[in-house]
Computed example of a mutant assay.
Amino acid sequence: MLLVVEQFLNGLQFGLLLFLLAAGLTLVFGIMDLVNLAHGSLYMMGAYFAATFAAWTGSFLLGALMALGATLVLGIVLEMTALRHLYGRDHLDHVLATFGLILFFNEAVRLIWGPAGLALPLPAWLTVPVPILPGIHYPAYRLAIIVVALLVALLLYLGVMRTRIGMLIRAGASNREMIGALGINIKLLYTLVFGLGAALAGLAGLMQAPILTVQIGMGENILILAFVIIVIGGIGSIRGAFLAAIFVGMIDTLGRAFLPNLLRQVLSGAAASTAAPALSSMLIYLVMAIVLVVRPEGLFPANRR
């Protein structure tokens, strides 16, 4: 029972982190029609900013807030100086240009912070276990990630569904030509959307930083899962990204936790430990393939958000 609850919460926590990364990516892709491979680099920069600012200020929370603001500004500057020139061009141009940005950010980090990774230590009050059920404790920081991510998801949903800017974002995801014809400043809307996406990626990175080592290229593997999520959920759909992220996080976490024991019934211990993570990943991509066949627009396309 203890293991099941812990792994369920781990899957929820991982899924919510994936949602923060995928939400910005799906908005940028759905509204701006921009394939941004450098989204994972913004995730990495959020982690590096948080580690640096926390070391400077001596405060984890202050460092996290400063990192969030820095990633937002970085995203706005990046959109205005580089990505704005890619609008309306072929997706292959987007892929090549943003892949170049990945290399740029990786080398910039190497020059500024060096090749060795950084650590982001947690304050003492976030390292204690918290009782969640009788006899069951869960790390306070992982619980804080779940609470913060759920709060951000709620605010993002209310912002997109209940505000004028959210109305414009939804309209842009459905018909960007129409909102341009109505006199909306498309460039400003795109800048705001990209800045929001960058901030969400940075938030995911800085929250993951205390769990994993902050290192060069840390956003590249997780970016693949973010693309899988927006394909499953539907490009431009916040609800789709949320549900697909939880689903993917659960499959990955529970598969890695419980598949080894199941496979040991028919395989050796070493073979089972090696095969379980691969099978967990394969199941995620199998689900994506099935969704593409059955519903190519995703489970919750933008016009049905």
Rank of each mutant, 00 (worst) to 15 (best):
M1F: 13
L3V: 14
V4A: 13
E6H: 13
E6F: 10
Q7P: 03
L9I: 05
G11L: 02
L12H: 03
G15P: 00
L17K: 01
F19V: 03
L21D: 03
G24H: 06
N36Y: 07
G40L: 09
G40N: 12
G46M: 07
Y48P: 01
T52I: 00
L61C: 00
M66S: 06
M66L: 15
G69Y: 03
L72M: 11
L74S: 14
V77H: 05
L78P: 07
T81D: 12
H85D: 06
V95I: 15
V95M: 12
V95G: 04
T98V: 07
I102Y: 12
V109G: 07
R110K: 14
I112K: 10
L122A: 13
A124C: 01
L126T: 05
V128A: 14
V130T: 11
I132A: 00
L133P: 01
I136E: 00
A144H: 05
A144S: 14
I146G: 06
V147H: 03
V148P: 05
A149L: 07
L156E: 07
L158T: 10
G166V: 03
I169T: 12
A171I: 03
G172S: 05
I179E: 01
G180V: 10
N185A: 15
L188A: 15
G195D: 09
A204G: 15
M207T: 11
Q208C: 03
P210W: 08
T213D: 13
V214D: 10
G233V: 02
I238M: 10
I238N: 01
F247R: 00
R256V: 11
R256W: 02
N261D: 15
L262S: 07
A270S: 14
A270Y: 14
I290K: 00
V293T: 12
L299Y: 11
A302T: 09
